[in-house]
Design a protein around this nucleic acid. Sequence first.
DNA 1: CTTTCTGCAAACACTTTGCAGGGTC
DNA 2: GACCCTGCAAAGTGTTTGCAGAAAG
Lengths: 171, 171
Amino acid sequence: MFSKLNRSHRASSVERHMNDFRRGKGWGAQIKRMGRRMTVPRRAIFKVVSNSSKHLSAEDIYMEIHKKYPGIGLTTIYRTLKLLVKTGLLIKHEFGEGCARYEYTAGKIKEHAHLICMSCGKVQDCSDIDIEKFGLDKISKEVSSRYSFNIKRKRLVFHGLCEECVKGGKK
Amino acid sequence: MFSKLNRSHRASSVERHMNDFRRGKGWGAQIKRMGRRMTVPRRAIFKVVSNSSKHLSAEDIYMEIHKKYPGIGLTTIYRTLKLLVKTGLLIKHEFGEGCARYEYTAGKIKEHAHLICMSCGKVQDCSDIDIEKFGLDKISKEVSSRYSFNIKRKRLVFHGLCEECVKGGKK
DNA sequence: CTTTCTGCAAACACTTTGCAGGGTC
DNA sequence: GACCCTGCAAAGTGTTTGCAGAAAG
């Protein structure tokens, strides 16, 4: 079942994951170690989130999944997302739209700013700006020493108007 | 009705507000200009949020209000909060706890970082650290030029462990 | 006296939970 | 074969809306 991988293109994240699984590494193994199981819905969900560069909501993922697997329900999406967050592969964002969005990080957290357009609602990553070097490191240091706060995660969000909406003249 | 103010202590925010109202300034006047009305529930809600230095949720405000005015319902709290946000006196925060929290700003936005304890849930303001000067200005400039993004508001949140929870040994 | 505001109950959107059946190891 | 996982339906959040009566101006 895990052996019929299509080798004609570069290994997708799912393939990589399956290899890892066989070798006892990666998400599958991590799950196994937790006494949990690898299933079709989980694989499908993992594939969708790991192949997307966008910030997907549970609903987004459900609709994507539903094309190929109409049998998978929203409940399972939510449960699997929670699991993926717990293993550290996903970060859960709450941008205040009324629903959570998930970002694939493959376990390594590279802090970056997010831009949210107040007009069209689009969310962009500023992944090519090293916010730490641009000054966030100094702020963090100051904060943690002045407030004796043990920082675990940093979140920088800019609300405003994206390029298209400024050009488009929308207010 | 507006003339029986107690003058024995420094003007509270409600008194100041009422004076402003008579003079055609401040929130009351602002509301009037919008064709809206000044009412008992609105005054009470304004008093609670403007006198608190904490980040209150609608529920928090409701419980506080309910002591003095058991007749005021949650619906009115929500509607008034929306109004206060629209007039710019309040900022609505969504820290991802499942409910919104409101911060009184009196119209002037002084961007500051927030610390959220992952253990006890406490939210602190870092109002005595000028995050702009500590480097946020540089990040903003870089972001807006590199992404052609028109920044309207900046939000910096640190998740971690507060002093008490670190000391208390909680994980 | 007109128009806005209010409380109640119902509706809402997103997310979680209980349970019996099905799948994984 | 034991136990975990799943889908469904139902319950649970925090928040919004429709409506008739109350209040502001």
